[in-house]
């Protein structure tokens, strides 16, 4: 049975690795609902948080294929009840409706929205929460003149384990990670003579 599953992947920070991981999904025609990639607590190690709507057995096989990649350290996959997760959203709302309509202000306050930027013409609010909470707030702001909206990918923490943190420290002690090597020549065409 399909359900929402969050896959957590610890990797080296290498150019091209995002593609190597992404194609494992696209090859099986599995849609990625949400993808967050960011540095982990340790320098040089990245953490991917990937959300899919899939059968757990399929995700188990997929997770093994991801973990098989040379630059991947560790993969976890969890159902929603095994994790604590949040998404962040930004809402750009015309300043005048806030001033004119009390219910908008109340709505934002009830949802724990925090003003990030206040300008004469618009105000940008931020909320953090689960997908349904954000969805319901947009639905209610939409008829009131929402100008722009953006939502982040999911970030999630796994409830059960002590986490991968101690393992990561061990990795780092055993052997430092490879240096990130990017292209230092880009944009230097004119300095370099070629045939």
């Amino acid at each position: 049975m399909k359900s929402e599953i969050t896959i957590t992947v610890y990797t080296e920070n290498q150019v091209g690795l995002l593609n190597r991981i992404a194609i494992l999904f696209s090859r099986r025609k599995i849609n990625i609902e949400s993808l967050n990639t960011s540095p982990s607590e340790l320098e040089g190690i990245h953490r991917f948080t990937i959300v899919v709507f899939e059968d757990e057995e399929i995700v188990r096989k997929l997770a093994r294929q991801i973990e098989k990649q040379v630059d991947v350290l560790k993969v976890y996959f969890n159902t929603n009840d095994e994790i604590i997760w949040q998404e962040m959203a930004l809402y750009k709302v015309p300043a005048d409706i806030i001033a004119e309509k009390v219910k908008v202000e109340r709505l934002l306050r009830e949802n724990g929205a925090r003003a990030v930027v206040i300008r004469k013409d618009y105000i940008v609010f931020e909320t953090t929460g689960q997908r349904e909470e954000i969805d319901s707030l947009i639905a209610r702001l939409q008829p009131l003149g929402l100008i722009e909206f953006v939502r982040s990918a999911r970030v999630a923490i796994i409830k059960a384990s002590a986490g991968f943190h101690s393992k990561l420290l061990e990795f780092e002690q055993q052997q430092p990670g490879p240096m990130l090597s990017d292209n230092s020549y880009l944009g230097r065409n004119e300095e370099i003579f070629t045939m």
Binding site: N183, Y185, L186, R188, N189, I192, T194
Partner: peptide, 8 residues
């Protein structure tokens, strides 16, 4: 190709 030409 030369590194500065990548993507061109």
């Amino acid at each position: 190709v030369f590194a500065h030409l990548l993507g061109t």
